[in-house]
Structure formats: structure tokens, C-alpha cells
């Protein structure tokens, strides 16, 4: 909610600044531009800047790990320690949230975390594109998690999984009230998951774009203030990118755990 408000504020700022000579449009950072148009059976599958930067982020994630592991040794160097810490971080989340039978989902959760993290962080490079600021990208991941955990629940428990929507120990009279509420709260999961990440990335990058615009356009004696803010907010954005990847990952684990153990 807060993030959306910030976005709205940024949009207002755009309107206010639109009349002045250099045109400022922070939202153009989110404009998806086709690079290689591809169409299959009438469905648009073009490679856009969004897709390209997602690939760059993913390739960066992969090659960072490969670089860290170029000479694996028992006594790790700095890069290898970092890679191991990242691995251990996800391993701990999976073990603590799902438990022992979470091992089988580890590769997916590991990849999910580092995909989101690297998309969030590469988005901070000036001139880049943040794939996770696209609602459809975060929505795809969130829907993937949602569909996967729902199917997993039915696969594990069969029709019994429907009891997930019927709170135990409740009077029958309250069921018509509670079941829709449970269903709504279940359906809200992927939406809140995707909107949270998208809104945070959009708000942060809009703010940075505005600050960057001021730094670039103001004369030198006026530019130091937005420049300082740019530096500070870049730091904050790195932190938010990390936190959001963490929240997305831990909620994924929570949902998988719900499907497995029906809490």
C-alpha cells in the first residue's frame, strides 16, 4: 500500500515536472521495448528489454556462482565463502520452514531466490531494466508458486486437502462465513506475493529515477543534495531488493509447507 502511494506520488511529480524544459519521465524505465520480435501461432513471444535483463541477471547469478566455485577448496576464499553463505542461507530457510522433506524443492527455491535477488540488484545499474518491476514477471513467479503448492497439496492429500479451507473445531453454523474467508485468503496469496515485489521495485526505482534526473539536470551547486539522496537510496534499494527476495522465498516455503503439512 505504502509502495503504491509512493508510486502515485512519483507519478504526480512527473506531471509537475512535465512542463519544464527537459522532459522527465521516470516511468519510461518500466517501458517494455521489443528487441527481437518473435510471434508463434499468433502469440507474441518477443524478446524485450525486460527478458534481456532477466537473462543478464540470471547469467550473472550463474557465473557468479561458477566464478566462486572455479577452484573449490575445503578452506574457502572470499568468493567461495559468499557462495556457501548464500547456499546455507537458503538451506536454513528451507529446513526451518518446511523441514526435512523440503530438500526435494531446494533447487527451485534456491533458483527462485537468486533470480529475484539478481533481477532486483541488476535493476539498480543505471540504464538497466528491472524485470521484477514488471507485475507480469512477479505474477508469473507467484502464480507458479501458487499452482505448484496447490497441486502439491492435492497430490499429497487428495480431496482431503480441501479441509485446508475448513477451519477445524468450528461450529457448522459459522462454516458458510469462514469457508469463503479462507478461500479469499488463499487466493490472495499469489496476488500479495506478486504485488509486494512489483510495488517495492517500482516504487524504489521510480524514486531513484527522479533523484537521478534531478542530479543530472540541476546545476552543480544544486545537484549535491539529490546526488546524496541518490547514493543513500541506492543503498536502501539494495537492502530492499534483498529483503523482498527473502520475503518472496520464505513465503514460498511457507506455502509449500502448508501444502505438505496442512497447518
Amino acid at each position: 500500500m505504502f509502495a503504491l502511494t509512493a508510486t502515485a506520488a512519483a507519478t504526480t511529480a512527473v506531471h509537475a515536472a512535465a512542463s519544464s524544459a527537459p522532459k522527465m519521465d521516470p516511468l519510461h524505465h518500466f517501458q517494455v521495448i521489443k528487441i527481437i520480435p518473435i510471434s508463434l501461432f499468433g502469440i507474441d513471444l518477443s524478446i524485450s528489454n525486460s527478458v534481456l535483463w532477466m537473462w543478464i541477471a540470471m547469467a550473472l547469478a550463474f557465473f557468479c556462482f561458477r566464478f566462486a566455485l572455479r577452484q573449490p577448496s575445503i578452506v574457502p576464499g572470499r568468493a567461495q565463502s559468499l557462495a556457501e553463505a548464500g547456499f546455507q542461507f537458503i538451506d536454513d530457510i528451507v529446513n526451518e520452514t518446511i523441514g526435512h522433506d523440503g530438500k526435494q524443492f531446494f533447487p527451485y527455491i534456491f533458483t527462485l531466490f537468486f533470480t529475484i535477488l539478481f533481477c532486483n540488484l541488476t535493476g539498480l545499474i543505471p540504464g538497466s531494466f528491472t524485470a521484477t518491476s514488471q507485475i507480469i514477471v512477479t505474477g508469473t513467479f507467484a502464480m507458479g508458486v501458487f499452482i505448484f503448492s496447490t497441486l502439491l497439496g492435492f497430490y499429497r492429500h487428495g480431496a482431503h486437502f480441501l479441509h485446508f479451507f475448513v477451519p477445524s473445531g468450528l461450529p457448522i453454523a459459522l462454516l458458510p462465513l469462514m469457508v469463503p474467508i479462507e478461500i479469499i485468503s488463499y487466493l490472495a496469496r499469489p496476488v500479495s506475493l506478486s504485488v509486494r515485489l512489483f510495488a517495492n521495485m517500482t516504487a524504489g526505482h521510480t524514486l531513484l529515477a527522479v533523484l537521478f534526473f534531478f542530479t543530472a539536470t540541476l546545476p552543480w551547486f544544486g545537484a549535491w543534495l539529490p546526488f546524496g539522496f541518490t547514493v543513500i537510496f541506492t543503498g536502501v534499494e539494495i537492502f530492499i531488493g534483498l529483503i523482498q527476495a527473502y520475503i518472496f522465498t520464505i513465503l514460498t516455503c511457507v506455502y509449500i509447507n502448508d501444502a505438505l503439512h496442512m497447518h
Binding site: F30, V32, I43, L45, S46, T111, S133, V137, T140
Partner: peptide, 23 residues
């Protein structure tokens, strides 16, 4: 917000899934 331009959805969904699985 350009993010709500539905014409970009099909390609981004497709490539997100494919790239994720490859990764």
C-alpha cells in the same frame, strides 16, 4: 504504469517460465 500494458504479458510470462526452468 507501463507494467499494465497487457500486450507485453505473453512474451514475459513465456520467457520467465522458460528461463527460470533453464536456470
Amino acid at each position: 504504469l507501463p507494467q499494465f500494458d497487457t500486450s507485453t504479458f505473453s512474451s514475459q510470462t513465456f520467457w520467465s517460465i522458460v528461463s527460470f526452468l533453464i536456470l
